[in-house]
Design a protein around this nucleic acid. Structure first.
Lengths: 230, 230
DNA sequence: AGACGACACATTGTCGACAAATATTTTGTC
DNA sequence: GACAAAATATTTGTCGACAATGTGTCGTCT
C-alpha cells in the first residue's frame, strides 16, 4: 500500500503526531498557503505547549512547508507558479539521477515488485480510462519506488523526506488531475524497462523527460489560462 | 569575499550564534564525527538552556550534520566513503541542473563578476602553482556563484543551505587537497564560458563532468589506499 | 494635517523544572 | 562466575513562566 513517507518510522512522540496533523492540514490547504502562523493559537488548538508546537514547526520548516524569520514568526509557504516550476526543475535533476542510480543498484526483487505494481496500475487504469492515475497516489507510488531503488540515502532523504511534501501540497492546492494520465503510465513502463536492463543513462533521460513533460504541461495550462483571462 | 553561507542572514538570536559555533565545531571535527551528543553537557558548555540548544540541534539536523532518534538522542553524522560518494552523486545532479539554469537566467552583471573572480583565481593560482586552489575556498566560491546565478530558490536552498555544510565537513575531515587543482581551474573557465554563451545543455554537461571527475578522483585514491594497505 | 515619539499590547525567544523513556548498575538466583 | 530482573540514574520530551523583541495606538509637536 501507499504510505505518506516511506523514509520515516511511525510517530511515537506527541510532537510527531502534531507534526503530522499540521502537515496534512497545510498540504490539504486547511491552513491556507501564505497565511501567518500564530504559535499561541495553534498550541491551544492542538492542546499542547508552545515548546512542543515549536518543535513541530521546526520539522515543518525542514520539509519547506513553512518559513520562519527570527523575532517575527512563521508563515505557511505560498504556492506560486514560479515555485511550482522551480520544484519541477529540482525534481527533474534529483529524480533523474535517482533513476540512473536505481538502474545501477536495484535488486532483482525490487524489479519484480515494481513490475507487479505497474501491472496493477495498468489494469485499474484501463478500467477507469486514465482519469485517475495521476490523482490517486499511483503516480507518486511509482516515483517513490524508483527513488528508494537508487539505494542512495542522500537522494532518498532529499526527495522523499523534503521535496515530496511540497509536491503533494501543490497537487492538492492546484487540483492537478492532468490529462497526461495514460501517457504517464506508458512512460513509467519504459522507465522501468530501462532500469531492468541496467541502462542508467537511458533511465535517467526517460525520467527527466517524463518530469519535464509534466512541467511543460503545466506551463501550457498556465499560458492557456492567461489567454482566456484576457 | 567568501562567506560561509550566502543564503542566510546574520545571526541575531543566541540560538543562531550557538548553531554557528557548533556547526563549525562539527565541520572541523572538534566534535568528532559519529559521536553521541549529550544535550546537558553541550548546554553547559555553551552556557545556554537546553531548550535553546535543542533549537540549535534542530537546525543542525536540517543541514544533515546530526541525526536524531526519538527518545534516544542525537549523533554527529559519521563520515563514510559511501556517504561521500553519495554526496557527490547528489551534487552532480543538483549542481548540473543549477548550472543549466544559470545559463538561462544569469544576468550580465553576474557574468562579469564571475569572470573577474576567475581572473583573480587564475593569478593567485599561477603563483601558488595549483596547490591551494581547491583547499582555499576558491573552488567552493565558484560553485556558490554558479548556484546563485541559477536564480532558483529551491536549488539554492538545497545546495547552499544543506548539502554544502556536509561538503565542507568531508573536505575538512578527509583533508582533501586534491591534485586536480589546476585542472579544476580550467574546467571552471569552460563552464563559465558555456554559461556566458547561454548554452544550458553544455553548461550542465561540463559541470556534471567536473563533479564526476572529482568523485572518480576520490574513488581512485580510495582504491590506491586499499592496495597499499594490503 | 502629518510626522515623530512614548506607551501598551502581542508575539517570539529563553529559561528552569517536571514527566516519561532509556541506559546503567545492583542484586538475587542458579 | 554468569545470567535475569529490579532498582537507580541519566537522558530526552513536555510544560508553564519570564525576558526580549516587534507591532500598533495614542498623544503631542511642528
Amino acid at each position: 500500500m501507499f504510505q505518506a513517507n516511506p523514509t520515516k518510522q511511525a510517530a511515537v512522540t506527541t510532537t510527531d503526531k502534531v507534526f503530522e496533523q499540521i502537515q496534512h492540514a497545510i498540504v490539504e490547504g486547511k491552513i491556507p498557503s501564505g497565511s501567518k502562523i500564530s504559535e499561541p493559537e495553534l498550541a491551544k488548538r492542538y492542546q499542547i505547549s508552545r515548546s512542543t508546537l515549536r518543535e513541530a514547526l521546526n520539522r515543518l520548516e525542514k520539509c519547506h512547508l513553512i518559513e520562519r524569520k527570527a523575532n517575527i514568526g512563521s508563515r505557511v509557504v505560498d504556492c506560486t507558479i514560479e515555485g511550482l516550476l522551480e520544484l519541477y526543475i529540482t525534481r527533474e535533476a534529483l529524480e533523474g539521477m535517482a533513476c540512473r542510480q536505481a538502474a545501477l543498484n536495484i535488486s532483482d526483487d525490487e524489479i519484480n515488485q515494481m513490475q507487479a505494481m505497474l501491472n496493477t496500475h495498468g489494469q485499474t487504469q484501463e478500467l477507469k480510462d486514465g482519469v485517475a492515475y495521476y490523482q490517486e497516489e499511483g503516480d507518486l507510488d511509482f516515483h517513490y519506488k524508483v527513488i528508494l531503488a537508487s539505494h542512495n540515502k542522500q537522494l532518498i532523504d532529499l526527495i522523499c523526506g523534503q521535496l515530496y511534501h511540497l509536491v503533494r501540497m501543490y497537487r492538492c492546492q492546484f487540483g492537478m488531475n492532468s490529462p497526461r494520465a495514460s501517457r504517464a503510465f506508458d512512460e513509467h513502463s519504459r522507465i522501468l524497462q530501462a532500469i531492468a536492463e541496467r541502462d542508467g543513462e537511458l533511465a535517467e533521460m526517460l525520467m527527466r523527460r517524463h518530469i519535464a513533460a509534466s512541467r511543460k504541461n503545466i506551463e501550457n495550462k498556465i499560458a492557456q489560462q492567461k489567454f482566456t483571462a484576457v
